[in-house]
Amino acid sequence: MTCKNCANTLSSDFSFCPSCGAKVVSKRITAKSLISDFFERYFNLDNTFFKTLWHMLVKPQEVCGGYINGLRKKYLNPVSMLAIALTTSGLILFFMKKVAWGKIDFSKISYAQTSNPQEGTEKIFSASMEYSSLIYFLYIPIITLASYLVFNRKKYNLPEHVIISTYSLTSFSIISTVYAVLLLALSPQMYVDTALIYVVIMILFCMYVAIKNSPCSNASLLWRIPSFLMIVFIGYMGISIFTMIILFLTGDLNIQDFVPKK
């Protein structure tokens, strides 16, 4: 018998390949095996997924620092975390469009108004949702730059700060999925009304992770925290402007949406 992944010769009693570590699969896929594999992979309390999320809350320096220093098995890697976060974001978008959309009064959303309070604002939200994945990715370099410039006592290089930022953003996104889905089901209006608060909490969580990965004195936090927030705020405004430019270039928005009606 040979391993289907690396072609290494295996004994018939092997459950895993000693060369590449892949599980030996000798039976056909069934509904039972699919369900079993899913629950074993994602709902086993001992697996790396839940461990990664929990430790990102209580000791993120071990997750991020561990990966940077070569620890690869104990925690889920940042690329896998990013894939899961994008999947959960897609779930939220599905709930937004299929469950919550018709229950939202866009004219009451104060932070994204046009000359047509209902249709214009709804148009902005609808168009922005199409580029939500791109917008999500743009936060990574912003958080990376802010943490690299302000919280870098361990002298991590820029790619290593990308790891920290990716872990921060994806962990927050995954953990907040339950909150987002419940709020969309129970009070869609509150979900969109508190969107900016959600962004603020996300940024604060990323700053918490950055601080944990760069221990510094309480006195230095007096200038580090405002500096971090200022850099992120400038980046946030840049993302907002960039998004509006994209929406205009693609024709999703036009100048008439912002001209006061007579």
Score class of each variant (00 low, 15 high):
residue 100 A to P: 02
residue 100 A to D: 02
residue 100 A to E: 01
residue 102 G to D: 13
residue 102 G to N: 14
residue 102 G to V: 06
residue 103 K to R: 12
residue 103 K to P: 06
residue 103 K to V: 08
residue 104 I to P: 00
residue 105 D to Y: 08
residue 106 F to Y: 05
residue 107 S to Q: 07
residue 108 K to L: 13
residue 109 I to E: 04
residue 109 I to Q: 04
residue 109 I to M: 03
residue 110 S to Q: 14
residue 112 A to R: 01
residue 112 A to P: 00
residue 112 A to G: 05
residue 114 T to W: 05
residue 114 T to R: 04
residue 115 S to A: 12
residue 115 S to Y: 14
residue 115 S to D: 13
residue 116 N to S: 15
residue 116 N to E: 15
residue 117 P to D: 01
residue 117 P to S: 02
residue 118 Q to A: 13
residue 118 Q to R: 15
residue 119 E to C: 08
residue 119 E to W: 11
residue 120 G to F: 00
residue 121 T to C: 12
residue 121 T to K: 02
residue 121 T to H: 02
residue 122 E to T: 05
residue 123 K to I: 06
residue 124 I to P: 02
residue 125 F to I: 09
residue 126 S to R: 14
residue 127 A to W: 03
residue 127 A to Y: 03
residue 127 A to C: 10
residue 128 S to E: 14
residue 128 S to C: 13
residue 129 M to K: 00
residue 129 M to C: 02
residue 131 Y to I: 15
residue 134 L to H: 03
residue 134 L to P: 06
residue 134 L to W: 13
residue 135 I to M: 12
residue 136 Y to Q: 08
residue 136 Y to D: 11
residue 138 L to F: 04
residue 138 L to C: 06
residue 139 Y to C: 01
residue 141 P to Y: 06
residue 141 P to H: 09
residue 141 P to I: 08
residue 142 I to K: 02
residue 142 I to H: 01
residue 142 I to D: 00
residue 143 I to E: 06
residue 143 I to F: 14
residue 144 T to G: 07
residue 145 L to M: 15
residue 146 A to W: 05
residue 146 A to E: 09
residue 146 A to I: 06
residue 148 Y to K: 05
residue 148 Y to G: 04
residue 148 Y to T: 07
residue 148 Y to P: 04
residue 149 L to R: 13
residue 149 L to S: 12
residue 149 L to E: 09
residue 149 L to D: 07
residue 152 N to L: 06
residue 153 R to Q: 10
residue 155 K to G: 07
residue 158 L to A: 14
residue 158 L to D: 08
residue 159 P to Y: 11
residue 159 P to W: 11
residue 159 P to C: 13
residue 160 E to C: 02
residue 160 E to N: 09
residue 161 H to T: 07
residue 162 V to G: 14
residue 163 I to R: 05
residue 165 S to I: 03
residue 165 S to R: 02
